[in-house]
Design a protein around this nucleic acid. Structure first.
Lengths: 177, 177
DNA sequence: CCAGACATGTAAACAGTTACATGATTAG
DNA sequence: CTAATCATGTAACTGTTTACATGTCTGG
């Protein structure tokens, strides 16, 4: 799975601009995928050159013009090839967990600060996902619900672990005094 | 956080070869970080040139020679700088969740197959993490326990969601017939 | 006899980010 | 007047993977 596959996927239903695609990445895909404009625009250009998508320029008033892309038959075949290909393993890079792993090389105050920040972030993420789920639920397919429920369950589990970890750090501190 | 930071971290306690580091990546770090030999060896070479680590060649019998690296004072300062830098956000790329998101473009049998595979993988991962936790628990720091408990909680949550999702897919199938 | 562990390294390719450049409109 | 939103694009850089190259020893 790379950005091209994801772009083909989002274009299956409706035509979109690069800007629109970035919006999707930052909202509904945020908890399992992301890509920057620096990836999106060159990828769209390459895909158009290869005939996977076609461009349509929309002249707008008061706003910059838009380049809207539609998937071609060739693009649909390419998307089907992605779907038929083996699933690649999840890739996670967690700086937060790395800090926890190397926690012995820093002060207890630093650890507490990291945990507090981590808890805040997961709380915000949980709130966002719950809002998204409520908002998009009516139009969601069964598998899209599976997807967001996995995301939700992961964030809930992480948050609980962090809160429990925070308590353990506090308990250990009290113990050492 | 990049490979260099992680390598500095693992060298804080003991000297290691590139091969040893790869072993660590595939065992204790597997659930939140990974890097290939193609990253590890060139990174070690670059770090030695910059004076962050020093090389020592160990001649072995019956096995290829080893290049064992030790962190320098400069390396320790660099590691401290990483620890003092802001935490970067988690990065997750999940092809599995992408397939679920685009599930409407494939057959129910395909979805079931993906879910079965996903469940198997998470069960295997859960088993591995539980074994690791049991094995390494005695020597683990509080924060290392926090780290593995997050990993464990995430896998458990994912597995439950997958199992629940699988049931939902089966129920929907029965419903449509 | 063959697979897998042990061990290092390089080159080509790929994917992706960050920062920059441009510029109008709108809301506070 | 300032920040945010809308909108596209490029160039330099970074990081990383994949595949190749090499070779011994051990266990089944």
């Amino acid at each position: 799975m790379n950005s091209q596959d994801v772009i083909l996927g989002v274009l299956m239903k409706r035509k979109l601009s690069g800007y629109d695609i970035k919006q999707l990445f930052e909202t509904i895909f945020s908890y399992f995928y992301n890509a920057s404009f620096g990836t999106i625009y060159p990828t769209l250009a390459k895909m158009e050159k290869e005939g996977l998508i076609s461009k349509e320029s929309i002249i707008q008033e008061g706003k910059p013009n838009k380049n809207v892309f539609t998937i071609t038959e060739e693009g649909k075949r390419r998307f089907a090839a992605y779907i038929a290909s083996p699933i690649t393993p999840n890739e996670l890079k967690s700086d937060f967990m790395m800090r926890m792993f190397f926690g012995e090389y820093t002060e207890a105050d630093q650890i507490k600060e990291w945990l507090e920040l981590g808890i805040q972030e997961q709380e915000a993420e949980l709130h966002k996902l719950r809002e998204d789920y409520k908002r998009y639920k009516p139009g969601m397919s069964v598998t899209q619900e599976i997807c967001i429920r996995i995301g939700l369950a992961q964030v809930e589990a992480t948050l609980l672990s962090l809160q429990e970890g925070y308590k353990r750090v506090l308990a250990k501190e009290a113990d050492n005094q």
